[in-house]
Amino acid sequence: MGMTPILEVREISHTYHQKDRITKALDQVSLRLMPGSILGIVGESGSGKSTLIRHIACLEKPDGGKLLYRGNEYTGRTPAFAGQFMQMIFQDAYGSFDPKMRFDRSVREARWEEDDPALLAELLKKVRLDESFLQRYPRSVSGGQCQRLSIVRAVYSGARILLCDEATSALDVASQAMVIDLLKELQRDYGISMIFVSHDLGVVSQLCDEVIVMRSGRCVEQGDCLGVISHPRDPYTRELLDAVMEVGEETGIHHAAEAQNEISVYPGIPVI
């Protein structure tokens, strides 16, 4: 029956105890990531989305539940063990590199197998960075370039899953668009699977195949990304979508454009 998910989370819970209060940061959250697909996790601050991917990467110890990679349980293993098949991409790319190490060393050090210069060259080409960037230090490149190098490092390490935590949130518009395209290419060309945590519904809808909406440590809605965004069932999902402010949303100008055989009525703005 069907394919085995590359990653499965079964009823993971995480509880914080403070004085007389118990906070459930995660309350029996489950998910399945299929090989080669991108799963978005959306929610507002405190919804538990970052805690969830920290659990997946074994950076936290769950109070209950199971984690499985290709059907094999790895709950309770070390972050280094999980690092063999998954890598995190953080919002703060600079913070994820040793500031005193050239990229060359940081990137090569992350690889589990033998060095593969051809693959490294190919990846750099893919992220549109010259090989000379490897000789530079983190603080001498821009935020967007640094994030692209952290993606190179993650893929070069041999990871089959990327866990992206607000990976494009700190980037400028053009860099963000480039990183989104890049992640799609990695999915297409290398079959890499991803979990993409973001508060930005625009980015998630452009990138992800499936989506999970989280609120207060629980998953309130999940399913096909386009379906959930087009026909949200949960009131909270609807509230989130209603709060998104976009150019042209109230004028209905996009619907008018679609009617005219998808010719944009104003230059430069794609019809969606």
Binding site: G227, P267, G268
Partner: peptide, 25 residues
């Protein structure tokens, strides 16, 4: 500015911002 942008930078900004993708009606 937002619906008939003249400047190429304004157009780039408008183009590159990820919009919420919905099913067509």
């Amino acid at each position: 500015v937002l619906y008939h942008p003249q400047d190429s930078y304004t157009r780039m900004l408008l183009e590159k911002i990820p919009r919420v993708r919905r099913e067509k009606w």
